[in-house]
Amino acid sequence: MKSLYKILFVILLSSSIQVNLFAQDEVSPERKQAIDSLALEKVKDLGKYISIIGNKDTEFSEANRVIERALELFADGSQMGVSSLSRPDVKYYGVREYFERLMALNYDRVTIQWFNIQYISDLERQPDGKYVGVITIYQRFQGESDDGLKYMDTTKKDITIYVERKETQIGGRIIGFWDVLLGDIRVTETTT
């Protein structure tokens, strides 16, 4: 996984060294594709972390460590807005609170399955210069206890991604790169 990040990082880095992208309004199709891949990797990691956090077999200390890792994927102050078919009002949780509630659910087995589909929006520029996009994915969550109790839902997750142009100094040279962070996530239960 780490090596994949490295490859993507280098692709993003090498494609952007000579251009002053702060002044650029449009993200080229090629760069957009690289950013999409990086964002999808982060979304996929988030799915893995959720499985680990929600599993009863995960030690408390390990779950907390994974929560910290998961939080690193997010921009500060990100929230989860959750609604269900029976309760259309949106309930808001800070991301940490959402993970801690998930940990407290204590299912014996947690399975997160993905539908083989994701939709990635265009990137739009915000007044602060960052780009914002939304990735839509569909997941089926299944929590099972040893006593046979089962909870299952299918949700549409609209995940905000923030894409920011950053600079770092390597060997005395200032090199630009694109950084992707996850933001607010809207979780809607679907009938699928």
């Binding site: 999808l40 979304v43 996929k44 799915g47 399975t111 997160i112 399955q113 993905w114 539908f115 083989n116 589909i117 994701q118 569909y138 089926r140 699928t192």
Partner: peptide, 9 residues
């Protein structure tokens, strides 16, 4: 593909 997948989508 990005994980464990479900069927008909």
């Amino acid at each position: 593909t990005i994980g464990t997948y479900l069927g008909d989508e």
